[in-house]
Design a protein around this nucleic acid. Structure first.
Lengths: 176, 176
DNA sequence: ACAGTAAACGGAGGAGCCTCCGGTTAGCAA
DNA sequence: TTGCTAACCGGAGGCTCCTCCGTTTACTGT
């Protein structure tokens, strides 16, 4: 990749993170303008709006995933899963755009997002294993995205209560 | 309301139902054209895309809700809830547009959709009561919308398994 | 140093959602 | 029937997302 292309790519990510965090209803044109590149350049680096958002948040999303093993050690299996889910929802809640992008990452099997999806399923898988849960990681992830998209913080907490119960009870049933 | 307005409204609904059912990626302009009215008229009757979709499906959605008491009688509490959720998902699955509109109906408290939302919470409430479940109907509904939006039929079935377990286990816990 | 080329650049433009506003018409009262 | 008014009608136009393509420029081999 050419040096100027790398420069522009990083500049775009920087500007986009700032814009997505501090403003709302950000247009891609505005981001391109603020980065001093044409709209076409933005679209070559990031083919869709979701792709840009995904790239912007990939780092933080991976941080979340990487925290899973530590949670497991310090909190124990059940609390670790719950804490991880809480963090997932809390993080998604801070960025409206992220919610929609997550749908693309999880639900649709869009190829460029494969990396993020793999990271997340891995983390969930790790958290589910010590519980003996039979839940498919992808299923749980899809549910979490649904929770993040629909309802406020309080509602989300109650929905997570329900999901936790479902995970544990499902596990208990198969353990019989 | 004037007679011609009523005529146009019904014509639009008719055309829209046909279009949403048989085609994909329907534009509102196309619907207006097929109904022989201007795009402005369509938007006066239905302020947003979601509003039109909601109006189109309101009837069938209400049918689903009205079926709840009968399910309860013939299947018993647990199977009735499960069957109702299955039907909800199955119906949502047939219409991609519906999924997005449901989000507006459920998650956002958009006023014109109040009617549909009330009907649905009522139905869910009725189904939850005999189970002694403490789940908030709105929470369950929000989860169902999430399930409908994310994942295919098989995945949805598994997610409903988990949710059922959660509802029943949550109930069991509070019953202790 | 320099020429060739592959890749990046940037903006014009197409499509869709939604708004706005001047023109038109249904319904009502006399 | 006729005149008034409130409500409806319809499409031009703005905004945004995304695509396409002619132009420019950074790297490579000699």
């Amino acid at each position: 990749m050419r040096a100027d292309a790398v420069r522009n790519r990083e500049l775009l990510l920087e500007v986009a993170l700032d814009a997505f965090t501090h403003e709302k209803d950000v247009t891609l044109g505005a981001i391109a303008k603020k980065a001093g590149v044409g709209i076409g350049t933005l679209y070559r680096h990031f083919p869709t709006r979701e792709a840009l958002i995904e790239a912007v948040y990939r780092t933080e999303l991976e941080k979340l995933c990487d925290a899973a093993p530590e949670l497991l050690e310090t909190l124990g299996p059940e609390a670790a899963l719950r804490e991880w889910m809480d963090r997932f929802i809390a993080y998604a809640a801070t960025k409206r755009d992220l919610k929609e992008a997550l749908q693309a990452v999880i639900a649709l099997g869009i190829n460029p997002f494969e990396q993020s999806r793999a990271k997340m399923t891995e983390a969930v898988s790790l958290l589910l294993k010590p519980l003996g849960a039979t839940t498919d990681p992808m299923d749980l992830l899809a549910l979490l995205v649904g929770v993040a998209q629909n309802g406020d913080q309080d509602q989300a907490r109650r929905m997570l209560d329900l999901i936790m119960a479902g995970v544990l009870h499902g596990a208990a049933r198969t353990a019989r």
